[in-house]
Simulated scan of single mutants.
Amino acid sequence: MSAIIRAEDDLIWFMTDEDSGKLDEIRADPRATVVFSDGKSARVVFTGNARISSERAMIEALWSPAAEAFYPAGPTDPDIRLIRFSPDLGELWESPGRVVSLFRMAAAVATGTSARGVGSHVKAPL
């Protein structure tokens, strides 16, 4: 699933199908975690609550060429559902990369110091 971030709403949206297993998970427990990664050394983790929507006006507002690739019938496709994620806590995790981190950890072991300062972490309520 691709995230659709609407900062003006303070929400993260996902477009999915009615038969998605994720919807069953949300119905059972709306608490959710969303993770974004640059694929290298940074991750942003949000925790919050998810809700399922089939609101056509919002589906149309979020419609894009990428959505059309998955739903060729267009935004009126009756199987489209939205996951509305409302984050309440955000965390940023950064590290200098695997090779540098391993080097710093090895240096800490060799020198008897701590490698606790290898990366950074910021946590903020939203």
Rank of each mutant, 00 (worst) to 15 (best):
M1T: 03
S2F: 14
S2Y: 08
A3Q: 12
A3N: 02
I4L: 04
A7H: 12
D9L: 02
D10S: 13
W13T: 03
W13E: 01
W13Q: 10
M15N: 09
T16M: 10
E18S: 07
G21H: 14
K22G: 07
L23E: 01
L23N: 02
L23G: 13
L23S: 11
E25M: 12
E25Y: 08
I26L: 10
R27A: 05
A28R: 09
D29R: 04
P30W: 08
P30A: 04
V35K: 04
V35H: 13
F36Q: 07
D38K: 11
G39A: 03
F46Y: 14
T47R: 08
R51C: 15
S53L: 03
S53Y: 09
S54K: 14
E55P: 04
M58C: 13
M58E: 06
E60Y: 02
E60I: 12
A61Y: 09
A61Q: 14
L62V: 14
P65D: 04
A67N: 04
E68L: 08
A69W: 10
F70G: 01
P72G: 15
P72R: 02
P72M: 11
G74E: 15
T76E: 11
D77V: 12
D79W: 06
I80E: 05
R81V: 01
I83N: 04
F85S: 12
F85M: 07
S86F: 02
S86M: 07
P87I: 05
P87V: 07
D88M: 09
D88E: 08
L89N: 08
L92Q: 03
W93C: 02
W93G: 05
E94Q: 08
E94T: 15
S95E: 10
S95Y: 11
P96V: 09
P96H: 03
G97V: 06
F103P: 00
F103I: 13
M105Q: 13
M105S: 12
A106P: 00
A108P: 02
V109G: 00
A110E: 11
A110D: 14
T111S: 15
T113E: 06
S114P: 05
S114A: 13
A115C: 04
G117V: 08
G117Y: 09
V118E: 06
G119S: 01
V122P: 15
V122W: 15
V122H: 10
A124L: 06
A124R: 15
P125C: 14
L126D: 01
